[in-house]
Design a protein around this nucleic acid. Sequence first.
DNA 1: TATTGTTATACTCTATAACTATA
DNA 2: TATAGTTATAGAGTATAACAATA
Lengths: 160, 160
Amino acid sequence: MVTGTALGSAPSPDAAVARPIPDAETIAALRGAVLVLARRLRRQQADDDLSATEVAVLGRIYRDGPATPGTLARAEHVQPPSMTRIIERLEQRGYLRRDPDPSDGRQVLVSGTERGEKFVEDSRAMRTRWLATQIDKLDEADREALAAAAPALVRLADLA
Amino acid sequence: MVTGTALGSAPSPDAAVARPIPDAETIAALRGAVLVLARRLRRQQADDDLSATEVAVLGRIYRDGPATPGTLARAEHVQPPSMTRIIERLEQRGYLRRDPDPSDGRQVLVSGTERGEKFVEDSRAMRTRWLATQIDKLDEADREALAAAAPALVRLADLA
DNA sequence: TATTGTTATACTCTATAACTATA
DNA sequence: TATAGTTATAGAGTATAACAATA
């Protein structure tokens, strides 16, 4: 199950043993690195008053436009009640607003505000600064590898 | 120190050319993907009774050998009291043991047990299975990009 | 006095279960 | 009945502060 299409394209002539790409060890390393990095990212941005996920939600709304709480919950892979709380906090700060959907009374449309947009613009640089600083400590090959893998990581995170 | 290389971003006309250094937008994407992925990884492995960090600590001890709580805390980027709790749980399960350092009474040496080794061996495949399955859904180019970036991600997570 | 580790405590994030309102 | 969202509640994970023991 782990293999399947992940079997190496092994152009090597003596491909007696085809290893999946990435192999199990690499996947384990990936997993560990993601967990540590996420922990550091969370702590890092405790500086200002919004959590990592809250900023992610806000950024998503300004990137992709208004959305329902359910859609946002699925996108961020949190449960609906968690999204309710996140939206609550962001609304309290005036960074977004909730409007009832006129055609379906069950639904709510979450949209950004001007103040929220300003916050996103101002904070994005600050929030990525720490990570940028860290990445800057790596050598060029590592930075290139990260840049090349970023879209794949995004797709990986977005998978259903 | 931020040299500006990772943040500077004069958009060039030939945007098709990959930039050697991740630009701010790529870094922001990386950040978001890492946060979502970590959340999914955590939830995924709630199946058995150990948290993601606990498994990471256990794996580290079996990979790198006995270590002090302080060293482990620095390696995983958690605070010492958090590491104390993690070690406590792992010790209760018989997966590792704490021995006083004979030459320095303040220090403690945390070592693995046979039972812990067996657990690590048995659980690693299980724990990486979900991630492997997800990665398997990506196309080959994405999988290769991830494999190529894994060491860089590990180094990024390990930075002081 | 500085260092290592622990105990006590509290907070943040997220989840599950139960409820409301609309379709 | 099914769906969207919310309220209520609980639990996991981690942190800070205060403390003990040793150097």
